[in-house]
Design a protein around this nucleic acid. Structure first.
Ligand SMILES: [Zn+2]
Ligand SMILES: [Zn+2]
Ligand SMILES: [Zn+2]
Ligand SMILES: [Zn+2]
Lengths: 154, 154
DNA sequence: TCAGCTATGATATAACATATCATTCATAAA
DNA sequence: TTTATGAATGATATGTTATATCATAGCTGA
């Protein structure tokens, strides 16, 4: 495993410990499968890659449970509009995780976790709250065509 | 059917005609099922309600096709984060449909199609475009607790 | 050691969605 | 009117995503 991934895993261990939870070996390996993937994966994709990467099979039921755990620990995000999972881009950052924002390319399937200007997001949140609605699952998923795909098709 | 729904259906007929398409009887009845529902429905929910309301069964395959049609005609929206469908709140409006925005209550399942201040949305769109990403499927889905549910639980 | 809890496995099934080929139906040309 | 054509719908099968439930393994502390 690359130095980068090692570092992310180490940080994840710490982060779990700090919440009193355990990043077990299998949970760690599920996270590694996601870290090794350039694209988001479905739970069933993870089952397949886990088998390839670790020569060990894992029931899909367990994958869903481990994903739930990793999501609670904010190490993984679920892309609700794609039914796919992706590791958080900010595990090694120390700043607080605000509203995650994903740009999902419908051509190549790539996803970028971006940081839209905080002011805009705050305006948006404020505007919604002013209608009496309480935002809880703060996450934006926006679909389109990424820069690279746009260039290729031009 | 209520006067309101009659009016919406009439407008939908016109709107389809204007794009050279046909709002067939069955498509119309699927739209009516959605118009009659306070909550968004899954395709399978629609199958059930269609049977109840029209004493006539409709294969789920057909429902999906009719939903595709109604979505293309902008008479129905798909809530990607909920795998549910809802009739557009603006069928009888004449203004152009901008980026639809949905506030989805995770307590009662209710959905409100809102209009966030245009300036905010434009800032958001601009900010995304400036990263080189081309927005296509413009739609926001935000989850939380609606005003009523908030009051009830207080 | 043993009790109790957490994590994981095994199995079944539910819920959502699409692929494909057949049939029906509206429309308009002959 | 008949018939050809394409659009809409039906029928069937299957793929994909997710959850429910009960069983087992494994850790941890009395
Ligand atoms: Zn993140
Ligand atoms: Zn792309
Ligand atoms: Zn709408
Ligand atoms: Zn509510």
């Amino acid at each position: 495993m690359t130095a980068d991934i090692e570092k992310i895993i180490a940080k994840s261990q710490e982060s779990c410990a700090s919440t009193g939870n355990k990043l077990t070996n299998k949970r760690k390996k599920v996270l590694m499968v996601l870290l090794n993937s350039a694209l988001p994966l479905s739970a069933y994709d993870i089952v397949d890659r886990y088998k390839e990467q670790f020569q060990e099979s894992l029931p899909v039921m367990s994958v869903y449970r481990m994903l739930d755990f990793l999501i609670k620990e904010k190490l993984v995000h679920k892309l609700e509009t794609a039914s796919q999972y992706i590791s958080c881009s900010h595990i090694t950052c120390n700043h607080q995780h605000e509203m995650p924002q994903f740009l999902i390319c419908d051509r190549c399937g790539g996803v970028k976790e971006v940081g839209i200007k905080k002011a805009i997001i705050e305006e948006l949140e404020h505007s919604i709250r002013s209608t009496g609605f309480l935002l809880t699952h703060k996450q934006l998923e926006l679909h389109g065509i990424c820069k690279q795909c746009k260039i290729q098709s031009a």
